[in-house]
Amino acid sequence: MHATPAHATPAHSRPAVTELRLSAYRSHRGAAYPLGPVTLLTGPSGSGKSTALEAYACLAGLASGRSVAEVFPDPVSCVPEGAAPDAQGRRGFRIGCTVDGPAGPARLDLAVQADPELRIVGERLTADGRILLTTALRDPGRRTVQAAWLTGGPAGVTRAPLPDDRLGTALLPLRVAGSTEGQRRVLAAAEQVVVALRSVFSCDPRPDRMRAPVTPAGGRLHGDCDNLADVLHRTRGECATRHAALVRAARTGCAGPVADLAARALSDGRTVAELHRGPGAATPLGRLGQGELRFLGLALVLLTGPGVLAMDPAAELLPAQQALTVLADGMDRSLDARQTAELLRLALLCCARGHVRLTGAVGEGAAGAARGVPGVSVVDLTP
């Protein structure tokens, strides 16, 4: 772990998703949600908060090179309820996003067929009003789509088949030479989208999995935070500044005195995390309440980075040129108002430095308390 250097890349030049579009996905139709550095999605039960974060995570999975079958294991459930099949019995869903960064706003839109077989049947990448990449299913009997991307010059566009189970935008750096101005525009937009989407970490701490001792395994935090003790052992030794910030946060989010957070090795080789209360007094994290454990997990995520989280960020840019986006479903679940407010404070602090963004789903109570807080965007979803 390393603190952000004084000469770090400005936040506005780090690729980031600034809009999520759910044109036709589960309960969402024609929806477009703006996303800022700290965004809270709220609404009554059934309004689609978790679904929106799920769609975001699916786009991230596709950008990371995963197949459409891996990302959508139950594709039929993603089809909007009541959607009728066409004359060929086909049904599907549509999602997309806008990514801002050095190349300007770039829009990615996908059409996915769920029935009768799963495949990406249409993809469009646009920037500055120009279509940079478009794909379409021409022959249902083949496992490819016809792609066309901007070349510039006399040729105009290049046409070639691409697989129908992968995100074409993520494949472009392997197919486009970058020898013309048009090709360079395509590459810049594609790489910007891929970098932003791969810099995503979905986090939903599970207290039932966080209480048991863990076997040390490299210290990379899982999305459910079940190996928090292993990660604490690593972060405490590698970054004293961020560890001190976590301890300060724990004093607000945990009951009783907190002098330190540490990991202790057991005789069987496993590790257990503890709250040090003072000289000779320690409380194993397994004895803490659900809200305290969820709070510590989320706080640790916000205060660390891709090198400590179990994720695979894009290798095209240095970590200082990327912004980690944390997706936190049920962010305020089991938390009291004080804990939620402290997490928002940490998020705003990290986002001000430009290396972290947060998109969380919260209840109406937490959203109400966050309205009007400078730097926090509250997006209301309606069922």
Rank of each mutant, 00 (worst) to 15 (best):
A8Q: 07
S13I: 14
V17H: 08
T18W: 01
L20I: 09
Y25T: 01
H28N: 05
Y33M: 15
L53S: 04
A55V: 05
A57R: 11
L59G: 01
S64T: 14
V68A: 03
G82Q: 11
R90W: 05
G96W: 00
T98G: 03
G104Y: 06
A114P: 09
P116D: 03
R119S: 07
V121G: 04
E123V: 01
R124H: 08
D128P: 08
L133H: 02
P140C: 02
P140E: 01
P154T: 08
A155T: 13
T169E: 10
L187E: 06
V194T: 15
V195K: 00
S199Y: 03
C203Y: 05
D208Y: 11
T215H: 14
G218A: 13
H222I: 02
T235V: 15
T241C: 12
A244I: 01
D260F: 04
A265V: 14
L266H: 12
H276G: 11
G278I: 01
A282G: 13
L303G: 03
A310N: 14
P313I: 06
E316C: 14
L324G: 08
M331V: 02
L335D: 06
A347L: 11
H355Y: 07
H355I: 00
G365P: 03
G368L: 10
A370S: 14
R371Q: 10
P374Q: 14
V378S: 10
